[in-house]
Amino acid sequence: MKRRHCLAACAALAGQARGQGLRPLAIGFDEGSLPTMYRAGAQPAARGIYPALVGLAFAALGRPCELRALPFKRLLADVDGGQLLAGAVIRTPEREQRWLFSQAYFLERLSVYSAGVPFRGLADLTGKRVGVIRGWSYGEAFDAARRLGDFHCEEVSADEHNFAKLLRGRLDYVVATELGGRMLLELPAFERRIASGAAALGVTPIHLALPRSHEGGAALLAAFNTAVEQLQRDGQVEPLVAREIAAAAELVRGRGGVASIA
């Protein structure tokens, strides 16, 4: 029954979009997290794995969308204000009070990086300076320890800035996505000087989200879920991920580093 309901919602949304010429959905993504989501140069269009996957799902529904890259805290405020959908966020109890979420469409592995003592577990962060991205959640365990003051977090807009602070001794650890960290460690500035810990911080599901006040939000999310499931069955997701990683890596190499991109 649930499957049939989702298919019906998907068909209804696609027909509505094509028949009524609906206004494009505005969907926001963080601007500084290569290769998953980022802004390339001065253009506001979002690039990366998450925008590509979300855009492909809505294209399958015949629903036009604008994929925008912007600072993460501004993105959160614009979603609360009803101006955007959140294209790639973690589901937290606090956000669930305000937003509706899709099924997870990607699993993001988080790693902890250092230029000294390698990370082995959350207890290693006690009393340390930890670099994070402004406005991000890093899972319930990390967020709870942060609220308790077990360690001090310093926020920036892009992972590269935290890696640079790590090399200058201004941070003890940096939390970043495994895909983003792997890309940065290939740059001459960071190669062989920074390493990921033996243990991952965790694996976090990534969701599309929208305000609870969004008209037709539940049907939109049901249709999106069905479209993503179809992309997965058709084998389109893995090649898309590989292409976006390669494209982000080429940008990094071609422009001499991440700072000139985001």
Rank of each mutant, 00 (worst) to 15 (best):
L240W: 04
R129T: 00
I194T: 02
A242W: 02
S102A: 08
R63N: 06
R255K: 08
F72Q: 04
G197P: 01
R233C: 07
P211N: 13
A57D: 09
A219N: 06
A88V: 06
R243L: 01
L171A: 01
L34Q: 02
D124R: 03
D80C: 13
Y138L: 09
M1I: 04
E238Q: 15
L231C: 08
A104I: 11
G121V: 07
T36F: 03
I49R: 00
H5P: 01
G169Y: 03
G254R: 14
G180C: 02
L122K: 11
R134M: 06
A259Y: 04
E160M: 03
A86R: 05
A86S: 15
E31V: 01
E140L: 13
E108K: 08
V258E: 10
F106L: 15
S157E: 15
M183F: 08
R193E: 01
A69Q: 13
M183L: 15
V79R: 03
I261T: 00
T92L: 13
R170V: 03
G235Y: 00
A59G: 11
E250Y: 10
Y105G: 02
A219C: 06
C153M: 13
H152M: 11
N225I: 06
L13M: 02
A88W: 03
A26E: 10
L13E: 03
L184I: 04
G149A: 10
K2Q: 05
G28Q: 05
I133S: 03
A77G: 14
G127W: 13
A176F: 00
E215P: 14
F119H: 05
R18D: 03
L251C: 07
G32Q: 04
R39P: 07
A57L: 11
Q97E: 14
L75K: 00
A209S: 14
I49V: 15
P64C: 09
P93G: 11
F190T: 01
E191R: 05
N225L: 07
K165M: 01
S111C: 14
G257V: 01
A77R: 15
F151R: 07
V79L: 08
E154H: 08
Q232M: 10
L179S: 05
Y50E: 07
I133H: 02
L125M: 12
V203P: 07
R243V: 01
L100H: 12
R170E: 11
G21P: 01
